[in-house]
């Protein structure tokens, strides 16, 4: 029995992991684009971007999953989107919106003096951003990003709402069909270990930036 549960949970957890990594891979750069949009000096663009972020952050991820699962079919008659891909799109967009706000906060927290010092030395805007500002932003967003990324680990279970087989649902199935509770605790251990690894990793990154203040 233990072996069966282990195999099933592992199999299911690989889906959670897949959602996790693919979301990160796409949401991190997409978040940057959204952040640039919301900081854009062209008002209509920044307004639209901010409304978009408001909608995404202001509605449940669960609702967005349902929308991307059934929306394309019911609104546009497009049924080619698999469950997992619908889930991935919802996750990427949702997390990109959150990341964009973290990026924006990080970028806007850098003092004007840093830019001015760069410009006064004859640097271009691009040089100032990448050579001077960027790494300072990274230092400042490590903590909020790690928070968000650890939340993502657990949010991946929401994919079950559109019937994507993942670990929490699998564990629940054992409760329902075999009347045993321990797979629930067992599945919790998967999350704990994974988040533990991430915590150590982020702690390491934070330490890497400890060599300076500011």
């Amino acid at each position: 029995m233990f072996l069966t549960v282990t195999t099933k949970l592992l199999e299911a957890f690989s889906v959670n992991i897949k959602i996790f990594f693919i979301t990160l891979l796409f949401a991190m750069p997409l978040g940057m684009i959204i952040a640039m949009g919301s900081m854009c000096k062209f008002k209509p663009l920044s307004f639209i971007t901010r409304v978009f972020v408001w909608i995404i952050r202001g509605t449940p991820l669960m609702l967005q999953l349902i929308l991307f699962m059934y929306g394309p079919g019911l609104i546009f008659g497009y049924t080619g989107l698999s469950r997992i891909n619908a889930a991935l799109i919802a996750f990427v967009i949702n997390y990109a919106a959150y990341f964009s706000e973290i990026y924006r906060g990080g970028i806007e927290s850098i003092s004007k003096g840093q830019y001015e010092a760069g410009y006064a030395l004859g640097m271009s805007k691009i040089q100032v951003f990448f050579r001077i500002v960027f790494m300072q932003v990274v230092k400042r967003i490590v903590a909020p990003m790690s928070n968000e990324i650890i939340t993502l680990v657990k949010d991946t279970s929401l994919a079950r709402i559109i019937m994507v087989v993942e670990i929490t649902q699998t564990a629940q199935n054992f409760v329902a069909t075999k009347a045993i509770i321990w797979p629930v605790f067992y599945s919790g251990a998967f999350y704990l270990i994974f988040c533990g690894i991430l915590t150590v990793l982020f702690g390491y990154i934070e330490k890497k930036f400890d060599y300076y203040r500011g």
Binding site: Q114, E116, A117, A120, L121, G122, Q136, G214
Partner: peptide
């Protein structure tokens, strides 16, 4: 334009009240 200006600004050094060193 900015390109011309950057060339000129290379020849102008500036020191600020708040130093504005790059902390990293």
């Amino acid at each position: 334009n900015d390109k011309v200006l950057r060339k000129i600004f290379k020849k102008m050094g500036m020191v600020f009240q708040n130093f504005n060193l790059f902390p990293q």
